Simulated scan of single mutants.
Amino acid sequence: MHDTLPAAILVATDMSPRGDRALARAVDLAAAFGARLAVLHVVDEDLPASLRAALIPQAERLLAEQVAALPAAAEVAWTVTVMAGVDVAAIVEQAEQRGAGLVVLGMHREHPFRGIVFGTTAERVMRSGHCPVLVAKGAYRGPYRHILAAVDDSRAAGRALAAAARCWPQATVQAVHVDDVPAPLDGLAGTAFAAEPRPAWPAHLAPALADVEAATGRRPALLVQPGDDVADALRALADRFAADLVAVGSAAGNRPMRALLGGTAERILDLAPCDVLVVPPG
């Protein structure tokens, strides 16, 4: 996804309002990217067979009606699949079978173990399919306009930054490096993104910069945020910049996302006031 736009997108929905947000976002992205769209709903395989048999065709009909009612659906080649299984395994399987370059999921805020469940889902999708995951947390309000991308010295962070810049060229992309060493904060005076980049990126951020310049032909603004809590820093900056998307890399050992089941990643997903794009190392 960091090199090209995804040719296929998989959106998994539980048919709740949270799933509806993911569905609306996925349809819009498929139309914008010219991508095929696979809509997936998983029925619990532990339900009695007679109940599964009744639920599957009903869910297929309702989902098809819901997709068709979305304005951008007429521009998209889409399919609906309802299957019995375990949601994590089914998402991974369907993403691989359909060659998905992006998986879109809703945020399961009401689940008492949402961090564990959601983290496991996203981790297995990326580990098994090397596929970026977009978490639709808020109501759909059109294309992304302000993107905050966490960068460090890893290639995964560069891939996330490049993917965000390539997929949403109309958006302003602000690169952020959270550093333990205090540094001046450029562009924090107002609510808009910094208009100009820092004079020079630190040398250890060269891989991330090379990735985004190769993908987009331009250099994003860089802001160095002092601190040691990445999730909290991103939350505060996303609020200040009115960001509608936070993009992060997911490599093990990557400072913004040390491990998808680790506390930092779960806290980013939980604390971010907007959608979150998680890009694996490749």
Rank of each mutant, 00 (worst) to 15 (best):
residue 177 H to I: 09
residue 223 L to H: 10
residue 189 A to P: 00
residue 231 A to T: 05
residue 252 A to T: 04
residue 146 H to C: 13
residue 174 Q to N: 09
residue 194 A to F: 05
residue 155 R to T: 15
residue 215 A to W: 08
residue 243 A to I: 01
residue 190 G to T: 09
residue 253 G to Q: 09
residue 209 L to R: 14
residue 202 P to F: 12
residue 214 A to M: 07
residue 180 D to M: 12
residue 227 G to H: 07
residue 256 P to K: 01
residue 172 T to Q: 14
residue 233 A to C: 13
residue 164 A to V: 02
residue 219 R to E: 08
residue 186 D to W: 14
residue 243 A to G: 07
residue 177 H to K: 07
residue 254 N to A: 10
residue 202 P to C: 10
residue 247 A to N: 02
residue 157 A to M: 04
residue 237 L to T: 03
residue 164 A to C: 12
residue 235 R to W: 00
residue 212 V to E: 08
residue 185 L to I: 12
residue 217 G to F: 05
residue 171 A to W: 05
residue 222 L to E: 06
residue 213 E to I: 15
residue 164 A to W: 04
residue 163 A to E: 04
residue 219 R to H: 07
residue 258 R to F: 11
residue 169 P to D: 06
residue 178 V to D: 05
residue 165 A to L: 01
residue 230 V to M: 09
residue 149 A to W: 02
residue 202 P to D: 13
residue 232 D to T: 15
residue 226 P to R: 08
residue 239 D to G: 09
residue 245 L to H: 04
residue 206 A to E: 12
residue 211 D to T: 03
residue 206 A to K: 14
residue 170 Q to W: 06
residue 168 W to A: 04
residue 216 T to D: 15
residue 234 L to Y: 02
residue 168 W to C: 00
residue 154 S to E: 07
residue 232 D to C: 15
residue 159 R to I: 06
residue 168 W to M: 03
